[in-house]
């Protein structure tokens, strides 16, 4: 790994809203990557991380050892301060049988004018293991970020996987995410995306849950708000091929101004004992919600803002 750059870690922490006591806490693991360099890292027993820095990217291999329970959330911080550049992260995650970890990932590009953030992840969650991944993006107001996260997640029997993708601060720019989860027997996958689009933002969400094992469960949830000229295309698919598999696809998009939204919930069931449902709605802010808040004295703009904040919270 590279030398620790305390100054850059501080700057990235501040831009990512990470409290300094988290970075200094010996019981909390963290890994800070600026562009393709590791600038700070702290590991704890049970968690192994191997990093290979390359000229055009960085490979991160993370292993949570069999039966290890990482009590406190691990902070991963990926970011770039320069206005232009490409950050490419190739990530391999193995949560071994019976292990458990929760990760808070901060992706921060405050000054981006022309930045690409490419994440290619392969994640394996072992038998009865638990993996929770909360990814928060903080972008600047210029909308100069293109985000391409791709992940294939394999859940072994009884595994639990939960992911939340949040992009609420700053302009999205362009995001094109593509996550696919394969669920063996009794495993559970929850995938949530919450994105606030404005300006000329372009948002594409593609999430797929393959319920391959008996009693597997999958829920795909997307919440998107669009203002100005922002566009979103949400494609969520659950395919159930095993008996007693249960799935649900839930997409809600609020549009305002010249926003354009598209939602395609796909459910495919190849087993008569499986059951998958879906719901999708696209529209303006609900009139009764809006008028209730206005009848308490809020202006229309403030009422809309509060409703959207709630939806994306």
């Amino acid at each position: 790994m590279s030398m620790v750059d305390e100054q850059l870690v501080k700057q990235l922490s501040k831009a990512s809203d990470i409290e300094t006591n988290i970075v200094n806490n010996p019981h909390i693991a963290h890994l800070f990557i600026h562009h393709h360099k590791v600038i700070g890292a702290h590991l704890i027993p049970g968690l192994k991380v191997d990093v290979k820095e390359m000229t055009d990217g960085i490979k991160v291999s993370m292993v949570v050892e069999k039966g290890s329970v990482i009590e406190k959330p691990v902070h991963l911080c990926f970011g770039m301060f320069p206005e232009k550049g490409i950050q490419k992260i190739i990530m391999s995650v193995n949560i071994e049988d019976g292990a458990s970890i929760s990760i808070l990932a901060h992706c921060t590009f405050p000054n981006a004018v022309d930045v690409q953030h490419i994440m290619d992840a392969q994640i394996n969650v072992g038998k009865n293991a638990r993996y929770s991944y909360f990814e928060r993006h903080i972008h600047g107001d210029l909308g100069g970020v293109k985000v391409y996260p791709t992940a294939v997640i394999n859940l072994d029997e009884g595994a639990q996987f939960k992911t939340e993708f949040e992009l609420l601060k700053g302009c999205v720019g362009l995001i094109d995410m593509n996550y696919e989860t394969n669920c063996k027997a009794r495993s559970i996958a929850e995938m949530n995306a919450r994105i606030n689009g404005r300006g000329d933002d372009v948002i594409a969400i593609r999430e797929t849950g393959n319920l391959l094992g008996e009693y597997s469960r999958g829920v795909l949830t997307s919440r998107v708000a669009l203002r100005d000229n922002a566009k979103a295309d949400v494609y969520n698919k659950i395919k159930a091929t095993a008996a007693y598999a249960r799935g649900h696809v839930d997409c809600k998009e609020i549009i305002q101004d010249n926003g354009v939204a598209k939602a395609t919930p796909i459910v495919e069931v190849n087993n008569p004992k499986a059951h998958v449902t879906h719901e999708a709605s696209i529209g303006s802010v609900d009139s009764k919600q809006l008028q209730t808040l206005m009848s308490r004295g809020l202006s229309e703009d403030d009422a809309v803002e509060l409703i959207i904040q709630g939806l994306l919270s």
């Binding site: 919440r223 809600k252 609900d286 009764k288 919600q289 209730t292 808040l293 308490r296 004295g297 809020l298 403030d302 009422a303 509060l306 409703i307 904040q309 709630g310 939806l311 994306l312 919270s313």
Partner: peptide
């Protein structure tokens, strides 16, 4: 309202505090 509105994600404290 006869049937008050429902708000996904909006907390009771924030709803009351708003007005």
């Amino acid at each position: 309202w006869q049937e008050p509105a429902r708000y996904e994600g909006l907390l009771v404290k924030d709803f009351i505090s708003a007005g």
